[in-house]
Design a protein around this nucleic acid. Structure first.
Lengths: 186, 186
DNA sequence: GTCTATATGGAGATAGAC
DNA sequence: GTCTATCTCCATATAGAC
């Protein structure tokens, strides 16, 4: 077991704990318990305490999406980037077994604390998808609607699959969404 | 100001507080503060404490949906019931200004505590909507897909409108969903 | 039924030895 | 950097007077 860490090692561990327990539910004792990292170390890396930890997690998530999803949507071949998005998203959310922390924070009392990061994440996702749809010869109005519908549907699918404890719902929903967007492009 | 209560008076107040602050964020002191009801009274009505309070809220929500949405979907004129659903839902969620507590609990660490009630709420919603769609001459497979897509889309729209603090996203998403279902029935 | 006072536990956070 | 010990505060919950 590793006993010397840096921030970058810890953030993904924190992410899983916040995802599973929520912001309030992720107490410091549970964090030390699950990671094996003592409070002393945690406060060494995150002097701002729990709020800084969650902020770092959100920044990390944002970075991943920017690189793996948004940038390709904005710059690469549009239809290919959209197809890659569905695959990456299904993978990232483990077919619905893993929730979207940003979405969960948005519904939570946590929202106010991180509202800038939360809003940004979704705005940029929708905008990047809209850009890809327009390059794929979607009409302007339809591109906006479909981009919102796509991001919206992913979030809903996560809620539903988690509520029903049924990953098939997630997979099915993503397939339906993918077909809708596919049908509107060429 | 009313000073004598019964359970039925308190439950809706609790509902708003849980919606706004989440299960963990809704502390007893904040509850007494916002409702003006002392801890003594709260424990008088809900001897099981906060968990019983949240359970009562979920049961109340479930009852409202059963009556206002699910039953009409199962029994009334299908197309009319579906149209009424969109209106009732937009109204109930205050055009996205109010979240779905059941969905929020599903994403939260709270899920395990109430998983039966949470699963039930969504299963019955989807099933009722599917039933209406089939009576409106939707093919069996398509009815299942569209029912899931509808419920899913509503939840996603709530996440998104809350994240972006923009109720227009909610309204727009519901319109898009309504059109999709409308197009598949007759 | 409602209030005030209080018990008890665990929360986030800090100090300082190593 | 990591640990243990400890601080303070507020959480849920209870007791008992009125």
């Amino acid at each position: 077991m590793k006993t010397v860490y840096e921030r970058a090692d810890i953030v993904p561990l924190l992410a899983e704990i916040f995802r599973e327990l929520g912001y309030e539910g992720a107490t410091l004792s549970r964090i030390t318990e699950r990671t094996g990292i003592g409070k002393g170390s945690l406060y060494h890396f995150f002097p701002g305490g729990k709020e800084e930890m969650a902020g770092a997690v959100l920044a990390d998530i944002d970075g991943w999406f920017e690189e793996a999803v948004y940038r390709p949507l904005r710059n690469d071949d549009a239809r290919q980037a959209i197809a890659a998005m569905w695959l990456n998203v299904a993978d990232y959310f483990r077919s619905g077994g893993r929730i979207c922390l940003v979405g969960a924070f948005a519904l939570d009392g946590t929202r106010e604390r991180f509202s800038a990061a939360i809003g940004d994440y979704f705005i940029r996702w929708i905008e990047a998808l809209r850009s890809a749809l327009m390059r794929a010869e979607c009409a302007e109005r339809e591109a906006q609607t479909l981009a919102e519908e796509g991001v919206c549907g992913i979030q809903g699918a996560l809620v539903l699959s988690r509520a029903l404890k049924d990953e098939a719902v997630f997979t099915r929903s993503l397939e339906t969404l993918a077909k809708r967007l596919e049908a509107a492009t060429r």
